[in-house]
Design a protein around this nucleic acid. Sequence first.
DNA 1: AGCACGATTAACT
DNA 2: GTTAATCGTGCTC
Length: 193
Amino acid sequence: MNILSTEFYNRDTLLVARQLLGMRLVRSYCGVRLSATITETEAYIGETDLACHARSGRTARTQVMYGVPGRAYVYFNYGLHWMLNTVTQAEGFPAAVLIRAAQVQEGQEVVALRRAKVKCSDWTNGPAKLTQAFAIDGSQNNADLTNARDGLWIEEVSVISDVNVTIAARVGLNNVPEPWKSMPWRFFCNQET
DNA sequence: AGCACGATTAACT
DNA sequence: GTTAATCGTGCTC
């Protein structure tokens, strides 16, 4: 196993979002190893990106995005849902990659209990579904993803070739003005299984 | 202090 | 396709 390092995250956010496809998100939960292959990501880049939380500048909520790359930015949305991001680019520049979907590999028994009411194909095919399945919430905000100490990290597994990747506009940005609403900053693997 | 709304989900019709 | 659930955040008064 090869845990992605600070150098991986300290690069252009679009490159990180693209290359996170195929990587394995790992969670150490109650002594059990949960893992899932990342299949969908979105990039949020800087204060000028009006879809990015950093559009409001540095606040208590957004400070993690301004911090060192390779940390988790976990935020609460719609009064119910937690979203997992990885902080990218140099310290001081606010950017992150939202992990939108993944395919469970290890720990299926645990995930099956946590996602008991839905069929397995719906376990982790959305950003808040993923955090529910992996028991990720605000206590993981600013967790260090570059080692196993905080129980959450990403391992390099395989590289997904371009023919298997679709690039499209980000989703859920109803009130965001153009051109930000339509920027092709979403990356996902073509074949769902 | 009050308000509108959100990087969604699941359960409806 | 439509909508309730549910509350932190940032903005206005």
